[in-house]
């Protein structure tokens, strides 16, 4: 029996963001935007979906005079990501 893939993670941009955040402590908005190649609007919407799901936290602050948005993965996010990867492996392994 295949485990269903988490719909919150099975989207290209949200999965890219989670993959970036899983290997670092925190990343700012501009870094995520640059590495994913997404538009600011789209990225913002997808980040909010991940935050609403409890997978990441978003912190807004100022660096000098510039606003800074910092994202961190949560424990629930790490667990969901690991479950997603394990589910993917089971799909690919049983092909």
């Amino acid at each position: 029996m295949f485990k269903p893939l988490d719909p919150l993670l099975h989207s290209e941009l949200r999965l890219a963001v989670m993959s970036l955040l899983i290997s670092v402590q925190e990343a700012d908005f501009s870094f995520l935007k640059e590495k994913t190649g997404a538009t600011a609007g789209n990225l913002s919407v997808q980040l909010n979906k991940l935050a609403e799901g409890g997978y990441i936290t978003i912190e807004k602050s100022f660096k000098g005079n510039y606003p800074q948005t910092t994202c961190r993965i949560t424990k629930a996010g790490i667990k969901a990501f690991e479950d997603y990867v394990n589910a993917l492996k089971s799909y690919i392994g049983k092909k």
Partner: peptide, 11 residues
């Protein structure tokens, strides 16, 4: 606080 260009991530 003011001048450092952020690397975008902290590990």
């Amino acid at each position: 606080r003011s001048f450092r260009r952020s690397a975008g991530i902290r590990t």
